[in-house]
Computed example of a mutant assay.
Amino acid sequence: NLRFNKVVICTDADVDGYQIRTLVLTMLYRLTPTLINKGYVYIAESPLYEINTKNKTYFAYTEPEKTDILRRIDGEKYTIQRSKGLGENDPEMMWLTTMSPESRRLIKVLPTDAERTAEVFDLLLGDNLQGRKDHIAEHGAEYLDDLDVS
């Protein structure tokens, strides 16, 4: 009885947004796995950076994209700013970067993605204390550069 052909998860491109995305994916995987198995669930990518030159605005969704754009506009004056949260964008910016079917970027969620997300979510937030400790001891150092403890 699905009335639409896509369920799109749209969160900020920061750690809080990723956590919310993980929670929503886990909820969908647990409560409505058919949506994922039939290929209806997508993640809308939101840009990390807005790069403005005199004549054009560029959006970079990853650090390598930002580097590539800056290389391509070499010699031009530009301003660069970290994108605001989606709730702070004006409607035109939301349409351009996230909502318009012509310019948005969607990532299709595959059943294996959702299954792995649910497994990690259970491990990190579930009742298996020893499993969580073992995972952190084994893999914690891999995430030290991502910590935000300012």
Results as ranks from 00 to 15, higher is better:
residue 62 T to V: 07
residue 47 P to C: 03
residue 81 Q to Y: 08
residue 58 Y to C: 00
residue 89 N to Q: 14
residue 15 V to R: 07
residue 107 I to L: 14
residue 23 L to N: 03
residue 68 D to H: 10
residue 112 T to E: 15
residue 24 V to L: 13
residue 39 G to Q: 00
residue 49 Y to F: 14
residue 59 F to L: 06
residue 45 E to D: 11
residue 81 Q to M: 12
residue 119 E to L: 01
residue 59 F to S: 01
residue 93 M to G: 05
residue 33 P to F: 08
residue 37 N to D: 13
residue 2 L to W: 10
residue 59 F to A: 03
residue 136 I to A: 07
residue 63 E to A: 11
residue 141 A to W: 12
residue 103 S to W: 00
residue 82 R to Y: 09
residue 37 N to F: 08
residue 49 Y to I: 06
residue 31 L to C: 13
residue 74 D to T: 10
residue 114 A to E: 03
residue 26 T to Y: 04
residue 97 T to P: 02
residue 74 D to I: 10
residue 101 P to A: 02
residue 97 T to F: 00
residue 109 V to T: 09
residue 99 M to D: 11
residue 46 S to F: 10
residue 147 L to P: 08
residue 111 P to L: 03
residue 119 E to A: 08
residue 66 K to M: 13
residue 48 L to F: 02
residue 42 Y to V: 07
residue 63 E to H: 12
residue 104 R to G: 02
residue 115 E to W: 09
residue 134 D to H: 15
residue 137 A to H: 04
residue 137 A to P: 05
residue 142 E to Q: 12
residue 33 P to N: 03
residue 110 L to A: 12
residue 132 R to C: 02
residue 114 A to M: 05
residue 90 D to L: 05
residue 66 K to I: 07
residue 100 S to E: 07
residue 29 Y to M: 13
residue 58 Y to V: 00
residue 146 D to G: 08
residue 140 G to Y: 00
residue 41 V to I: 05
residue 69 I to R: 00
residue 14 D to V: 06
residue 45 E to Q: 15
residue 71 R to S: 12
residue 82 R to L: 11
residue 13 A to D: 01
residue 30 R to S: 05
residue 46 S to G: 14
residue 52 N to R: 15
